[in-house]
Structure formats: C-alpha cells, structure tokens
C-alpha cells in the first residue's frame, strides 16, 4: 500500500460533475434567480479542474507533498 490512488483526482472529478450539474440547472431551470447556481457551478468546475491538473502534474512529475 505504498502508493494509494490520487485523492486529488477523486475530488477534482466530484466537483467538476457537481459544477456542471449546477451550471446546466442554472440555464435550464424555469425558477427565477439562478445566478447563484451559475456562479457556484462555474467556481466548483474551476476548482475541480485545478484539482485534476494538480493530480495530472503529480502523475507526470512524481508525487510531492
């Protein structure tokens, strides 16, 4: 169990999925005041992408703290 799977990949995927769901809901929903969903969705997606990027860099450059 020396090298476990990269947690950043899991977190990145999770927030990317949630972010996309919120953005889609923000544009599709007929409810008023969807700005919060769109902004939060965008932020979650960005956060997820950053985590995925960190995970990818760790895979190519080797693990770091």
């Amino acid at each position: 169990m020396n090298k476990l799977f990269d947690l950043r990949f899991v977190i990145g995927c999770f927030f990317l999925i949630i972010g996309i769901l919120l953005i889609l809901h923000g544009f599709i929903s007929s409810e008023s005041d969807q700005t919060v969903n769109r902004w939060c969705g965008a932020f979650f997606s960005l956060f997820g992408l950053v985590m995925l990027l960190l995970s990818y860099r760790s895979t190519t450059n080797g693990p770091n703290e």
């Binding site: 949630i18 923000g26 929903s29 409810e31 919060v36 939060c40």
Partner: peptide
Amino acid sequence: LYPSGILGV
C-alpha cells in the same frame, strides 16, 4: 437563501 441546485449542495 438557497435555490434548488445549490440547496442540494
């Protein structure tokens, strides 16, 4: 304060 969507979060 939360609409559906972010309410789920």
